[in-house]
Design a protein around this nucleic acid. Structure first.
Length: 811
DNA sequence: CGCTAGTCGGTTTTT
DNA sequence: CCGACTAGCG
């Protein structure tokens, strides 16, 4: 959060980049780290000149390629560690890479100053050149909470109704603009309309101005300001273009527009790049082609909703002409049936670069599909299966339940609590996002940086000390008038008569506390100081007095916070770390089943993977379909692909016929993704439990007929249409129409499904302009316009509204 | 200013 | 059905 680190890229002491002789030697006797690589991996590592795109399918050794490539660059003397830019998305990935490079090369990896997340690398750049982007090098990095608080102020300052225009929404909007590298000026009028009747861009500009006054950046700014730094200061850009002889990017399919632009700036090589040092050994013949290597998998792009552009990876060859494209298709993780199933499923997506995973491993167990009567039975079946594995001495750490939405987790937790199966849930609020940790952090931030107004606002009345909106208003007014930060304003106000005596005393105590704590900053050990602050502020007492169930846990967390500070030399170091690395290492010591979302599971692997909740509406999620049409569906399908490919030996899919959602029970139908699985590699198992007699398995035809909860109908209704029908309100309507798929689907499922999917974003035949419709909330009306699944309807009572097609019934 | 009864909404998540 | 957030009172 604060002090810059200028010592980051001291040249690596060893090994000295090898001379020609050393390289010749390396060529004649391949280095040990190249042993055991397959030809494609080897090509991905040894193709060092020019742009390279490595399409690394699930389980094909992606991290190994990345880390070995770096080791190779270093040990062949092509670059010092400090001349390699290597970006990841998560701190976890960065950590893992550092460890593995260390394993390959020994302690040289210590000298990889430019291996990190996009955000941490941008932070480093900005701290160095802060003055060029109107910041001071000790600028603060805001978290989401601070962001919202600031946004609220901006909205209030613009005299807008906070109810009508929630700060959260503006924050999301600005975030999405920043993801696309849109500065306030570049936001189009149409986009700006999305908030406060066209004031969106103005508010955005006002927010940015506030950030500058606060000497602060939000996460999006780290990227954007770094881009601005480069664009406005070509000499700075040139310095880094020269420095970074090699660029590596992990998970390229997840990059957003801003990250792409940032990379492109750095990768530009205008004309011949002169050797950085006279003794540098390089193949660089003056070619302007950048040595950028992006590794990713378009089939695992599941973050479109937060700004990732699959297009970046699809367009790579166009962006970097002459790029080598290397496909890693040999899978080292899963057995044959699992891979074949995943491949068949993902083949339903269009617009992919195309890869087919294969393995030399055995076929193994087939992927299973199991139906349950309801979500409770689903949990019971999975629990029982896990207990059976437990008795066969399977390790619980090698078993995971991967859900689409976190509300599904609860059912499993409930079940495991009663049966005593140990489990762990990944996700939920992370350590540094917990309220008590954020509060404590705000105290520390304010001691470290008395001008941190957002930290002040967070804790001036936490714990409760009788200061409210009124007091804060006084602080603000004074601060603005005097041009001082809030804490200083509060201190000075104690000298005046502006505060009521009682309030004045409280404020005086508070400001004096901060002065005292700050005086101890240099002398005391930072952990002791932190303990003292939490004690003297009354914060720990506040939780000790709290009798609620979670109070004890919160106190534990505070202790843990102090403990984690020990690893840092001082408070500044700790705060900087926390603002960027929001995760805390978690213990994996005990043997437990893991429950997590599919998103969280990307990059992980387990022997056995349970995939519950494969039902239309839940997976694919209705909202993904409604809001993003076919693109949304394809992303859901990639998510399914990610899920199946997490398994080393067993992938087990489940669906329930009834699921409770927001309190009430809904009849559901199996996911279209189940229809898309290849028959030869999938085994449909019957629920051994009772209470699942709803399916008629007596007739021949598609095995999936047995999975249909309802009998035949006059027309074959494919998955997406069933989903549409399902959303129509009223169980009676459903009962009459029925959703049976019928055997037609299994004949040529993909083609059929493909056609119908294509139609799903087009105009549904159900409604045309002029049709009379009924909406459960707005009543009767006439369709005025149709746009995909969105209807503009003139309601008799409610007026003109945009509604989703699935929420109205034909009149 | 702080508590409590009502309303509203309810994928996915990193930095 | 549950939790997060707000209006309105003590």
């Amino acid at each position: 959060m604060t002090r810059p680190d200028f010592r980051d890229d001291a040249p690596a002491p060893a090994p000295r980049p090898g001379g020609l002789a050393a390289r010749a030697l390396a060529a004649s006797r391949p280095a040990a780290y190249l042993d055991g690589l397959n030809p494609e991996q080897r090509r991905a590592i040894e193709t060092l000149d020019g742009p390279v795109l490595v399409l690394a399918g699930a389980g094909t050794g992606k991290t190994r390629v990345l880390t070995t490539r770096i080791a190779h660059i270093i040990s062949t003397g092509r670059a010092y560690p400090s001349q390699i830019l290597s970006v990841t998305f998560t701190n976890k990935a960065a950590r893992e890479m550092k460890e593995r490079i260390g394993g390959l090369l020994g302690d040289v990896a210590e000298g990889m100053p430019w291996l990190g997340t996009f955000h941490s690398i941008c932070t480093k750049l900005l701290r160095r050149h802060a003055e060029l982007v109107d910041l001071r090098s000790d600028f603060t990095i805001l978290d989401t909470d601070d962001q919202i608080r600031l946004m609220k102020q901006v909205i209030a300052a613009a005299d807008l109704d906070e109810k009508r225009w929630p700060a959260r929404q503006l924050a999301m909007l600005i975030d999405s603009w920043k993801n696309r590298a849109l500065t306030p000026k570049k936001v189009s009028a149409g986009e700006a309309m999305a908030f406060a009747n066209g004031h969106g861009a103005e508010l955005y500009a006002a927010y940015q101005a506030r950030l500058k006054t606060l000497n602060a950046c939000d996460f999006g700014d780290l990227l954007l300001e770094a881009i601005r730094l480069f664009q406005e200061n070509p000499e700075v850009l040139a310095e880094y273009q020269k420095r970074f002889r090699y660029i590596l990017v992990d998970e390229y399919q997840d990059t957003n527009v801003a990250q792409y632009l940032w990379l492109r700036l750095l990768a530009q090589r205008k004309g011949a790049a002169a050797p950085v040092r006279p003794d540098a050994i390089t193949d660089d013949t003056g070619s302007p082609r950048p040595n950028i290597c992006c590794v990713g998998d378009d089939d695992q792009s599941i973050y479109g909703w937060r700004g990732a552009e699959v297009d970046n990876i699809l367009r790579f060859e166009h962006d970097f002409p002459g790029a080598a494209v290397i496909r890693l298709e040999r899978n080292y993780r899963s057995t044959g049936h699992i891979l074949a199933t995943a491949a068949h499923l993902i083949a339903n997506n269009e617009g992919r670069l195309g890869k087919t995973l294969f393995t030399d491993d055995e076929a193994g167990e087939k992927v299973t599909v199991t139906g349950a009567w309801d979500s409770e039975e689903e949990a019971r079946l999975i629990n029982d299966e896990i207990e059976a594995y437990q008795h066969k001495s399977h390790r619980l750490n090698e078993i995971a339940i991967l859900v689409r939405a976190s509300f599904q987790m609860r059912e499993f937790e409930d079940r495991f609590v009663t049966t005593g199966v140990p489990y762990r849930v990944i996700g939920g609020p992370r350590f540094y996002e917990r309220m008590e940790i954020r509060d404590a952090m705000a105290y520390l931030r304010l001691v470290n940086q008395p001008a941190d107004d957002l930290a002040f606002e967070r804790i001036y009345n936490t714990p409760k000390r009788g200061l409210g909106e009124a007091a804060l208003g006084t602080f603000h007014a004074y601060a603005r008038a005097a041009g001082v930060p809030l804490l200083e304003a509060a201190r000075q106000l104690c000298q005046t008569e502006d505060l009521k005596p009682k309030v004045r005393q409280t404020v005086r105590d508070l400001t004096e506390n901060f002065a005292r704590w700050r005086a101890n900053l240099e002398t005391m050990r930072h952990t002791d100081l932190a303990e003292m602050i939490l004690e003297e502020s009354g914060y720990t007492d506040f939780w000790k007095k709290d009798r609620s169930a979670e109070a004890a846990g919160r106190l534990d967390n505070l202790k843990e916070l102090i403990r984690s500070m020990e690893e840092f030399e001082n408070l500044q170091g700790f705060l900087e770390h926390v603002s960027l690395v929001m995760d805390a290492a978690e213990g994996e010591a005990e043997d437990r089943v893991t429950i997590m979302t599919l998103h969280a599971a990307k990059g992980l692997e387990f022997e056995t993977v349970f995939l519950p909740g494969w039902e239309e509406g839940l997976f694919p999620h209705q909202r993904a379909l409604d809001e993003n049409g076919r693109a949304g569906l394809e992303e859901e399908r990639r998510l399914a692909y990610v899920g199946i490919t997490r398994a080393k030996r067993r992938s087990k899919i489940y669906f329930a016929t009834n699921r409770r959602m927001h309190g009430l029970w809904n009849a559901t139908i199996p996911s279209r993704f189940i229809d898309e699985l290849p028959e030869a590699h999938v085994e449909v198992t019957e629920a051994p439990g009772a209470g699942y007699g709803g399916y008629n398995r007596s007739h021949g035809g598609s095995r999936f007929d047995a999975l249909q909860p309802f009998g035949g109908s006059s027309y074959a209704t494919p998955g997406w249409q069933r989903a549409q029908t399902r959303s129509a309100p009223g169980p009676e309507a459903r009962g009459k129409t029925g959703w049976a798929g019928g055997g037609a689907r299994s004949a040529q499922p993909r083609l059929l499904e493909g056609e119908l999917i294509a139609k799903s974003t087009g105009t549904p035949a159900r409604f045309v302009a002029g049709t009379r419709v009924f909406h459960i909330k707005f009543g009767n009306g006439t369709v005025a316009d149709v746009d995909g699944n969105k209807l503009t309807v003139d309601f008799d009572k409610a007026g003109r509204k945009m509604v989703l097609e699935s929420f109205v019934q034909g009149g």
